[in-house]
Nucleic acid binder design. Structure first.
Length: 305
DNA sequence: AGAGACTAGGATGGGTCATA
DNA sequence: TATGACCCATCCTAGTCTCT
C-alpha cells in the first residue's frame, strides 16, 4: 500500500499542471461569458475547438514506481490545439525544446568547431496578422535563397531552427523571427543587419547573441530552445476580452493559412523522431491512481492494486 | 476512452538548370 | 558568378483508424 508521503510526492509532481489547468479554465470561462462579443462571428469549428480545449487534461491516470521512485502520467486526453490551448502549447514547448537541444548538443559533440548563436529578426508593424505572417514567410524564404551565395553573411549558417512570433500593440501587429544558428565561422552582426534590411521592408531591429560566452553553454542552449519554441503570446495567460480577441484572430489565421510557426534547415533539418525519455520497465511493481480536476484542484485517488 | 500508428495533403528546403 | 524559376524529396499538420 502506498504511504501518504508518497501520495504527496505524486501531487507535488503534478502541481504545475494544476496551475496550467486553472489558468486555462479562466480563459475558457471568459470566452464562454463573452461568446456573443468574441466568437459569434465564427463557425462551429471554433466552437468545437473551445469545447475540446475545455476537456483538455480534465483527468489522468498516474503510476508510481517505488523501486525507482518515479511517477509517470498516462491515459490523458490532450486537445492538441496548441494555438488555442495553454496546456498543449506548454506541452509542445517542452517536447520541441528537448528535441532541438538534444540534436544541437549531439552535433556539438561531433564537431568541436560549431558555434551556436541566437538571432532575432523583425519587420515593420502590419495592420493585420495575416499580412504580418505572409510578409515574414516571404522574407524567410528570401534568406534561404540568398544564403546559397557566398557573398552573403547568411551563407555562413550551417543549420538553424526557429519560430515565428507575433505581438500586438497600438501600432499594429508586430511579427518577428527567433532563430538558433549553427556556424563555424564568426558571424558579423552588422552584415546580417544590412542583408536583412535589403531583403525585408527595412528591419528596425536585429540581434545576434553568441552562446559561447555563457558560463554553462549546454544549459544556455537548452533554455534558448525553450525560449525559441515557447508558445505564442496568444496562447498565454491573458484573460481579458481584448486579449482573447487577439488570441482568436491568431488562431483563425493559423487555421486559414495552415501556418507553420516552427521551422528548421541545414544541419538541423529533420529532427530525430525517437523520444529520448528513459523507459521504465513496466514489470516493476507500481501503484496506479487517478486524478480528476474538480474545484480548481486535482483530486488524487489511488486505484486498488 | 485515450494513445499511438497510419495516412493524405499542404508547405518548404534545397538541388538543378537557364539566363544575365 | 549571381539569381530566379522550377521541381522533388522531405517535413509538418490534421484527421482517421486500431489497439489496449
Amino acid at each position: 500500500m502506498m504511504h501518504e508521503k508518497e501520495l504527496t510526492a505524486v501531487k507535488d509532481k503534478f502541481l504545475p499542471l494544476e496551475e496550467l489547468k486553472n489558468n486555462q479554465n479562466e480563459i475558457i470561462s471568459v470566452l464562454e461569458k463573452s461568446k456573443d462579443e468574441v466568437i459569434s462571428f465564427e463557425h462551429a469549428y471554433l466552437r468545437n475547438c473551445i469545447d475540446k480545449t475545455k476537456k483538455c487534461a480534465e483527468y489522468f491516470k498516474w503510476s508510481y514506481y517505488p523501486l525507482s521512485n518515479k511517477t509517470e502520467r498516462s491515459n490523458t486526453f490532450f486537445c492538441k490545439n496548441h494555438h488555442l490551448c495553454l496546456i498543449c502549447a506548454q506541452r509542445r514547448n517542452v517536447i520541441k525544446s528537448n528535441e532541438w537541444s538534444n540534436k544541437i548538443n549531439a552535433l556539438l559533440k561531433v564537431n568541436k568547431l560549431l558555434q551556436v548563436s541566437h538571432l532575432i529578426l523583425t519587420i515593420k508593424n502590419k495592420k493585420n496578422i495575416d499580412e504580418a505572417y505572409e510578409v515574414l514567410i516571404k522574407y524567410k524564404g528570401k534568406i534561404t535563397k540568398i544564403a546559397r551565395s557566398k557573398k552573403y553573411e547568411f551563407n555562413k549558417i550551417l543549420g538553424y531552427v526557429g519560430s515565428i512570433e507575433f505581438t500586438k500593440s497600438e501600432n499594429g501587429w508586430h511579427g518577428h523571427i527567433h532563430m538558433i544558428l549553427l556556424h563555424t565561422e564568426n558571424l558579423n552582426s552588422l552584415k546580417l543587419h544590412r542583408e536583412w534590411g535589403k531583403i525585408s521592408d527595412a528591419a528596425h531591429y536585429i540581434e545576434l547573441i553568441d552562446t559561447k560566452s555563457s558560463e554553462n553553454q549546454l544549459t544556455y542552449i537548452k533554455n534558448l530552445c525553450k525560449y525559441v519554441s515557447k508558445p505564442s503570446q496568444f496562447s498565454a495567460q491573458k484573460n481579458n476580452i481584448h486579449e482573447l480577441n487577439l488570441k482568436i484572430e491568431f488562431f483563425i489565421m493559423c487555421r486559414k493559412k495552415h501556418a507553420r510557426l516552427l521551422f528548421s534547415g541545414g544541419l538541423l533539418r529533420g529532427l530525430d523522431k525517437e523520444p529520448n525519455y528513459e523507459k521504465i520497465d513496466l514489470a516493476t511493481p507500481r501503484y496506479e491512481g487517478i486524478a480528476i480536476f474538480k474545484n480548481k484542484k486535482y483530486q488524487y485517488r489511488q486505484l486498488a492494486a
